[in-house]
């Protein structure tokens, strides 16, 4: 069965098209809508987007591959992304990573077997004054992290899952 936007998302897509003089410029916003709706950008989703914007699937895939925040494969329900750039590392990001690896039983770049948690390291999140920091999925930041705080966060999220 072919993938398709829900009615509401399609409405948002049509709105996005009005923001630009070319269809191609709507590509990144359309990726965001698709990732929100389908979870990640599968080859089928990219083909659908290509159709919507009159682009070739190869072009769409080439652009998607350039941007790290677009997932090309499924991630865990909770994707924890720890900044390990300089300011965060100076104040203990490594301990945060180690604590999460131990707590979740996975290494950086992996997903727990139950599909609940993924763990990644990312570059500077622009939160250096409240380092160390992590971002949950593509949303909230958790700042001024300590091993205790991330342990607590994982426990809270596990309950939600």
């Amino acid at each position: 069965m072919a993938v398709q936007f829900s009615q509401e998302t399609y409405r948002q897509f049509e709105e996005v098209l009005t923001h630009y003089p070319t269809k191609r410029a709507a590509l990144l916003p359309t990726f965001w809508l698709a990732q929100e709706e389908f979870g990640y950008l599968s080859p089928e989703v990219m083909e659908y987007i290509a159709q919507l914007l009159d682009l070739s699937p190869a072009y769409v895939a080439a652009v998607a591959s350039f941007y790290t925040m677009f997932d090309k494969e499924p991630k865990g329900k909770f994707h924890l992304q720890v900044c390990t750039n300089l300011s965060c590392t100076l104040v203990g990001a490594q301990q945060i990573v180690e604590c999460l690896e131990q707590k979740l039983g996975i290494k950086l770049g992996e997903t727990t077997p139950d599909g609940k948690f993924s763990l990644s390291e990312v570059e500077c999140l622009g939160s250096c004054g409240t380092a160390p920091v992590l971002q949950l999925n593509t949303g909230d930041y958790y700042e001024n992290l300590t091993p205790e705080r991330v342990t607590q966060l994982v426990e809270e999220l596990a309950k939600q899952a």
Partner: peptide
């Protein structure tokens, strides 16, 4: 209009930003 990037530092370079806004690498 607000246009969201997606995790590429190079989009802060002004012509990289323009290319990205046009829907390209």
């Amino acid at each position: 209009y607000v246009h969201r990037g997606a995790g590429a530092y190079i989009c802060g370079e002004e012509t990289g930003l323009i290319e990205s806004l046009e829907g390209k690498r």
